[in-house]
C-alpha cells in the first residue's frame, strides 16, 4: 500500500516538476540574463559584453546603458511613439471590433458559428503573409492606387506604403481577431433581458446601449485592448515592412540594436525598459481576467 501511495505522489511530482523546471530554465533564467547583460558594457568580443564579475571576482555592473537610453532623445521619442501608435491602433481596433463582435453576438445561432470562424480563420494563416498582402494593395502601383487612378478619383498615386497610415492598417488588420474574440465572449453571455429592461423603462435603443451594454462589456473591452496594445508595442514586422525608415518603433529599434549594431547590452536595456512599460497593461489584463473569471462563477 505504502509503495503505491509513493508512486502516486511521484507522478504528481513529475507532473509539476517537469514543466516547472522547463519554464525556470527557458523562461525565468533568460530574463535574469537580459537584466544582467543590460548592466554590462559592450565590448568587441564573443560574446560582445563584459562579464558581470571581472577577473578579480569583483562585481562589475554599469548603468551606462540605461543612462544612455534616458539621455538620447531618439529612445525617449521612440518609446513615446510606440505607446502612441500602439494606443491609436488599439482604439481603431476597438472602433471596428466592437460593432463586429456586437453584430456576431446578436446574429442567429446558426450563422454565429460561421461568422466567428471567419474572424479566426485569418489568424491561422501566416501573420507575415497577411502583412505582405497589404504591400500589394498599398503600393504606389498597387491595387488601391491603380483602381483610384482608373476611376479618375486621383491623378497621381497616393503614397500609402512606408507611412504611419500603412502601419495602422497593418496593426488593425493583424490584431483585429484579438479584439473581437474577448468582446464577443463578453457580449455573448450578456443577459439580453437587461437591454430590454432598459428599453421597457423608457430608454431608446441607443440610450439602452450606452446605459447597459457598454458598461457591462467592460471586461471584454479591457481584455481586447490589452491583447492588442501589448503585442503592438513590441511589433517588429509591421513597421519594418509597411512603415517608413523614419517611423521607428521600439521593437524595431531593439532588433536593429541587436543585429545591426551588435550592441547586446543596449538591446537588453531597451528590452528591460519595454518590459517595465508593459508591466502596467499586463497587470491590468491579469486583474481583469481574474475578476472576470470570478464573476463568471
Amino acid at each position: 500500500m505504502a509503495g503505491s501511495v509513493n508512486r502516486d505522489n511521484l507522478w504528481q511530482r513529475v507532473a509539476i516538476a517537469t514543466p516547472y523546471l522547463w519554464l525556470l530554465l527557458f523562461f525565468l533564467i533568460p530574463f535574469i540574463i537580459i537584466l544582467k547583460i543590460s548592466l554590462a558594457d559592450p565590448v568587441i568580443a564573443q560574446p560582445p559584453f563584459t562579464p558581470t564579475f571581472d577577473e578579480q571576482g569583483a562585481l562589475s555592473i554599469s548603468l551606462d546603458n540605461f543612462r544612455f537610453l534616458l539621455t538620447d532623445d531618439l529612445y525617449a521619442i521612440t518609446y513615446l511613439r510606440s505607446v502612441v501608435i500602439a494606443g491609436i491602433a488599439t482604439l481603431l481596433c476597438l472602433a471596428l471590433g466592437f460593432p463586429m463582435a456586437y453584430g456576431i453576438s446578436r446574429a442567429r445561432e446558426q450563422t454565429r458559428g460561421l461568422l466567428l470562424l471567419l474572424i479566426v480563420l485569418p489568424f491561422w494563416i501566416s501573420f507575415l503573409l497577411r502583412v505582405y498582402a497589404w504591400m500589394g494593395l498599398m503600393n504606389n502601383h498597387g491595387v488601391i492606387n491603380n483602381t483610384l487612378l482608373w476611376l479618375g478619383v486621383i491623378d497621381a498615386p497616393i503614397q500609402m506604403m512606408y507611412t504611419d497610415i500603412a502601419v495602422f492598417v497593418g496593426l488593425v488588420y493583424s490584431y483585429l481577431p484579438f479584439m473581437v474574440l474577448p468582446l464577443y465572449a463578453t457580449l455573448e453571455r450578456m443577459d439580453l433581458d437587461l437591454v430590454e429592461a432598459a428599453q421597457d423603462l423608457g430608454a431608446t435603443r441607443t440610450r439602452a446601449f450606452w446605459d447597459v451594454t457598454w458598461p457591462l462589456s467592460r471586461p471584454g473591452v479591457v481584455a481586447g485592448c490589452m491583447l492588442v496594445f501589448i503585442p503592438a508595442m513590441g511589433e517588429y514586422v509591421i513597421p519594418y515592412l509597411l512603415g517608413g525608415p523614419e517611423s521607428l518603433l521600439i521593437g524595431r529599434v531593439l532588433f536593429d540594436e541587436f543585429f545591426v549594431n551588435r550592441d547586446w547590452p543596449l538591446a537588453s536595456a531597451v528590452a528591460v525598459v519595454l518590459l517595465l512599460l508593459l508591466v502596467v497593461p499586463i497587470v491590468i489584463l491579469q486583474r481583469n481576467q481574474a475578476r472576470d473569471a470570478e464573476a463568471a462563477t
Binding site: P30, F31, I33, I34, I230, P231, M233, G234, E235, Y236, G251, L254, F255, F258, A267, S268, A271, L274, L275, L278
Partner: peptide, 8 residues
C-alpha cells in the same frame, strides 16, 4: 512581446 522572448 516576441522581441523580448527571442532576445532572452
Amino acid at each position: 512581446p516576441e522581441v523580448i522572448t527571442g532576445l532572452s
